[in-house]
Amino acid sequence: MNINLTLVAQAIAFAILIWFTVKYVWPPLLRAIETRQKEIADGLAAAHEGKNALEVAAKKSEVTLNEAKQKASEIIGQAEKRATQIIEDAKGTAITEGDRLITGAKAEIDQEINRAKEGLRSQVSALAIAGAEKILRKEIDAKAHSEILSKLAAEL
């Protein structure tokens, strides 16, 4: 149990070991751990930020959705209004058009009637003349009497 040179040797070994640890062991471990700590802290902060951003985005999307809904209903309302208006207009146009057509048809019918009457008249007068000719072949001057007959026909 005597103190001897071993003490000095051990002290030197101790000094070398400490120097080695200070220089080569501690710094890389410290760096790795501190870097990881920083990364974890950054990650947590980023996660927190992301969460906040998500909340904001959710709120924003809700607002946008509501706006869109409102706009859509507005558009639908307008479209409905426009549709009824168009229908009303169409109805009006149809009625006027119908009226016009009816009037035209009536006028045409009247014209047709007149034409038929005209035709009939001329035919009747021709028949009358032919009849009168047959009856009065000999004594009646066709030319002189056709005037009278055409006057008659005009009175029909």
């Binding site: 051990q10 002290a11 000094a15």
Partner: peptide, 10 residues
């Protein structure tokens, strides 16, 4: 005791 003294004295 040389070892422990070496460490303690260092």
């Amino acid at each position: 005791i040389n070892t422990t003294f070496a460490l303690a004295l260092s």
